[in-house]
């Protein structure tokens, strides 16, 4: 043991035992190292936490922006689809066809007997809807 305990002499408080540290530099270094390491650890954890939080916020912001852009694009799609449908309503085209303004060949009699089919444009694709179904408990 490097420490030696001595009782105080005349000026000291009676009964007080003082220790003399014979290996002060090395002990201090260890203590400071431990303290520094602990501090470093705490700071590192804090910095890592801050970095993660920053990254998290950046991702959230990016996600939010993407959702906003998606909503804007969908709105634009709706507006454009509406405009195209408005321009191509049967009420507009049929009159032009019958007046002869539109240059479309009109057969004297039906050439095909199968049913007419135009592609359906759906706002919500079926798979989207099925994935967005509300839980059964909520009504």
């Amino acid at each position: 043991m490097s420490r030696s305990a001595t009782h105080s002499s005349q000026n000291s408080i009676p009964g007080l035992v003082t220790y003399r540290d014979n290996s002060l530099p090395s002990e201090c270094a260890v203590i400071f190292f431990r303290f520094g390491a602990a501090l470093l650890l705490v700071v590192s954890v804090a910095l890592a936490g801050t970095a993660l939080e920053t990254r998290n916020l950046a991702l959230k912001r990016s996600l939010s922006q993407q959702q906003y852009r998606m909503a804007e694009l969908m709105e634009k799609q709706v507006a454009l689809r509406l405009e195209s449908q408005r321009l191509g309503t049967p009420a507009k085209l049929l009159e032009a066809l019958e007046r002869g303004d539109a240059s479309l060949y009109r057969p004297p009699k039906p050439q095909r007997v199968d049913e007419r089919r135009a592609p359906l444009l759906n706002w919500n694709p079926a798979e989207n809807r099925s994935s967005r179904q509300r839980p059964a408990t909520r009504k």
Binding site: E75, R81, P90, R117, A118, N122
Partner: peptide
């Protein structure tokens, strides 16, 4: 909630919703 669209039997748009 955004109301759904209405189309005719050929898929022509009859009613839709704008924001």
């Amino acid at each position: 909630a955004r109301p759904g669209d209405i189309v005719d039997r050929q898929g022509r748009l009859v009613a839709t919703t704008l924001t």
